[in-house]
């Protein structure tokens, strides 16, 4: 009951304008965030949950911050959620509480294959993404984070360091090593 009351108070403080702004912001980032979460989890349900949790956390805690700050904050929250997810899934697989990540990934691939009938071109492109996902999986979590944030999302070194809670030097090192590894792995695959 207390938790619900708290929620109502927080939501009441978020004005209608802010909510509209947040809605626009979420529309811009949600698909990319989902893809980012999918690369880590390889499970659609988990990826959706992670994105939703990040959205909710941003609205509760940082809705009053200037809207320019939302993007790095959102990705910071998302990265933390993904990290938590990795910890939890590691524990889950140790305790054999549910299916392992690999089993989920296989199931997901079957679902995709059965649900979507794609033209040949699209199949070729999916394979490219699949290949990239496989290659990215061979990097460490920090290296993957750096690649996605720096290369894809276009955050600068300072912002990436803030999101990843590490030094700017570490970001540069992670990125350089990741790109070297990616180049080699992509060449090997092709």
């Amino acid at each position: 009951m207390y938790y619900q009351q708290c929620n109502e108070e927080i939501v009441l403080k978020v004005t209608q304008d802010q909510r509209q702004e947040l809605a626009n912001f979420y529309t811009q980032v949600e698909q990319r965030a989902y893809r980012m979460a999918m690369i880590e989890t390889r499970n659609s349900g988990d990826a959706l949950d992670l994105v939703q949790d990040a959205m909710e956390s941003l609205m509760k805690r940082y809705a009053h911050n200037p809207s320019e700050e939302w993007r790095p904050l959102f990705y910071k929250i998302l990265q933390n959620r993904i990290k938590d997810w990795h910890r939890w899934s590691g524990l889950r697989s140790k305790l054999h509480l549910s299916k392992s990540v690999e089993e989920d990934a296989i199931e997901e691939q079957y679902q995709l294959a059965s649900n979507e009938l794609t033209p040949i071109e699209q199949t070729a492109q999916d394979l490219t993404m699949e290949k990239l996902q496989t290659v990215l999986k061979q990097l460490s979590f920090r290296q993957r984070q750096t690649v996605l944030l720096r290369v894809w999302e276009g955050f600068n070194v300072r912002e990436t360091a803030h999101i990843m809670k590490c030094s700017q030097g570490s970001v540069k090192t992670h990125l350089s090593r990741a790109l070297n590894a990616l180049k080699i792995l992509l060449e090997e695959d092709s």
């Binding site: 989902y34 490219t128 993404m129 290369v151």
Partner: peptide, 29 residues
Amino acid sequence: QIKSVLDRSVDELSVETRYQLQIRRAQVL
């Protein structure tokens, strides 16, 4: 190369996924 593959993968998200994301967004808001 990486950026273009990732961008394309977002464009190719299924209708179902986009719909699910819209629902989650509405729930949060």
